[in-house]
Design a protein around this nucleic acid. Structure first.
Lengths: 227, 227
DNA sequence: CTTCTTTTTAAACGATCGTTTAATAAAAGG
DNA sequence: CCTTTTATTAAACGATCGTTTAAAAAGAAG
């Protein structure tokens, strides 16, 4: 309990200290399970200061997510642009589209002090928490990303139905979020055979799985429609 | 608000009324977001009665999950046994293993009054809520299921490494949980193209996606190891 | 320095939380 | 009938929640 104060570096601005403390606490216990007083204490300030900087608990949650997710999405769009440049105008291979989608989340979870799998839980959980205000945040943060990636998927699958592409992109995202949120459960269920610390390995396996599932579904649909 | 009292049928035992009210409320707002007073009010009783029957809020959550998940897992094991009987001693085809895993959750979400997609959220969310007592419940509810399905996967993939089978079964489950928990977000992101009411269609698509992802990953690994 | 804005703080607000107590009502067993 | 167990209820307990108030401290600008 006392050790947690060391996790927030001193000397930084109060605003950043609050964001950092909030991220760690929300990761461990969820949004509803953390109080403003705990955040303030771990950030070495008080509750009024947190309200001064973020207006409300909702405002703190929203800003914490935006602060973390926005750079990840920017990196996703950057990787997609890079892939388009290297393909020279031709449609992208699906695996490269999914690499652009999935690699940045792994980079974000691999901090300077080694992998931080717990952060991945936070992102996954932010999609399953029932708080309605989170839906607005997600629409704002992921609308552009979703549209951009759908454009590339359509170019890569000109004969596929748009509805099928949506469904299977949804499954790819669901796989990523489900894998992120439930990451810790793999080790105990596999009897320790699979280590939950190796984030990079998981992302690599995830890319293969998602690409295969997507390809299989689209191929399956096209086969059926030809019968 | 007043309408919600009608959702719990009168005349039933108090215990069942509390379980039903808890399920509906926890589905809508999560475990931490619902109070015992709300559950009691919707069940047309009082908080002391809920504590009398379930001991605590944790006890209520645990019993509600067990009450819902246990029949689903029993049906999964039944379908797996049925598939084994029909295969006549030969290893099962992976798609039949995953059908046994995924079909029952769709049946459970399709109640007498039509599909109930919101129930699927509850199951998905129970895996991402940070409450530590949920992990014990999950281990108790899913340990046998996990082991039984792993046995069949090993029989179906005698040359595959156990670690790879664990990872990809984990991804299949993650896809299912992620798709369940984030089901509602598909319709708005697809601009209404994909309806979130059609649970059966989603399960069918999910089976294809999961089977394809699993097969692709295992095949990919075997190919690499032959190089 | 003075003036004005920004930031931090201790203390309190009203509301609501999970849980318990103790009394009463209903049901069951003999 | 009486006794014993099971079930329900109103009321209260102590704790803690998100938020606000009002005053002091720290910086910025002149």
């Amino acid at each position: 309990m006392k050790k947690s104060t060391k996790s927030v570096p001193r000397g930084t601005g109060t605003r950043i200290r609050i964001l950092t403390a909030a991220e760690h606490l929300f990761t461990a216990r969820g949004f509803a399970g953390v109080t403003m007083r705990e955040v303030a204490r771990q950030a070495q300030t008080n509750v009024a200061s947190a309200h001064y900087h973020f207006g409300s608990k909702e405002g703190l949650v929203i800003e914490m997510l935006r602060h973390r997710i926005a750079p990840i999405n920017a990196e996703r769009l950057r990787l997609l642009e890079e892939a388009k440049r290297q393909s020279g105008g031709k449609p992208l291979k699906p695996i490269n589209i999914f690499k652009a989608l999935l690699l940045p989340i792994g980079q974000a979870a691999t901090g300077s002090k080694g992998p931080d799998p717990s952060f991945m839980q936070l992102v996954g959980r932010s999609f399953t928490e029932p708080a309605s205000f989170l839906e607005k945040v997600h629409r704002r943060l992921f609308r552009e990303l979703s549209d951009t990636f759908m454009v590339e998927l359509k170019l890569s699958h000109p004969k596929a139905q748009e509805e099928d592409l949506f469904w299977n992109l949804h499954f790819v995202v669901a796989t990523m979020l489900g894998a992120l949120a439930n990451h810790r459960r793999l080790a105990p269920f596999s009897g320790g055979l699979c280590k939950d610390k190796d984030v990079a390995e998981m992302i690599q396996r995830l890319i293969v799985f998602a690409t295969g599932g997507f390809a299989s579904s689209i191929r399956n649909i096209e086969t059926n429609s030809n019968q």
